[in-house]
Amino acid sequence: MSAPGAVVAAPEGLHDREFGPANAGKVGMWIYLVTDAMTFGGLLIAYASLRRMGNWPDPAEELGITISSVATFILICSSVSMVMAIRGAEMANRKALLGWLGATIAGGVIFLGIQYYEYNHLVHHGLGFTTMEHGNNLFGSTFYAITGFHGLHVLSGVIYLTVIWIKSLNGRYDGDASHVEIVGLFWHFVDLIWILVFTFIYLL
């Protein structure tokens, strides 16, 4: 009998014909991530179309890439700590699970702190959501819309990870990595999207 709220995996050797060993929670998360990817895709298409209209400032000059590069590196590191947390759960190593999940949460919090600092800095230098002192107003609108939407995902991920961390304290996931793997999918997706946002919004 599985615990209430457990993600029930297909019994060993009885994998689903269409989805293999993936449980319902994992398939559900993948379907959600695909729709979310479409949303980010729509935002990036809009960004590209508006940028083609002209009078677009050089993003690297306006935004700077030092701080966003540090944020990128932190997210990449947090993806690795997430994988290590899943390994910890699989091996019923609660100490490792809690430690690596904590490191992942810390990475997300640092990323959000950097984003707050960056926004504060840019606003004080004349880049608002609907106004830009020395260029196209749409530059600010698209920048804040896309990076803000991503930041909201990071915040959601931090909250989601914290819930999993709290539940891990009493051994809820010792030897059962299914929930940790699902939150990991979400977190890696946040990293994957940032890789594209960093390139398209800051570097190009």
Binding site: W30, V34, S79, M82, H188
Partner: peptide, 19 residues
């Protein structure tokens, strides 16, 4: 990130297609 960290490498069937 998708292939290794999200384990697409080891998924199969419709899940890979959805992804």
């Amino acid at each position: 990130v998708g292939w290794w960290f999200m384990h697409l490498k080891s998924e199969y069937g419709w899940l890979k297609f959805v992804a």
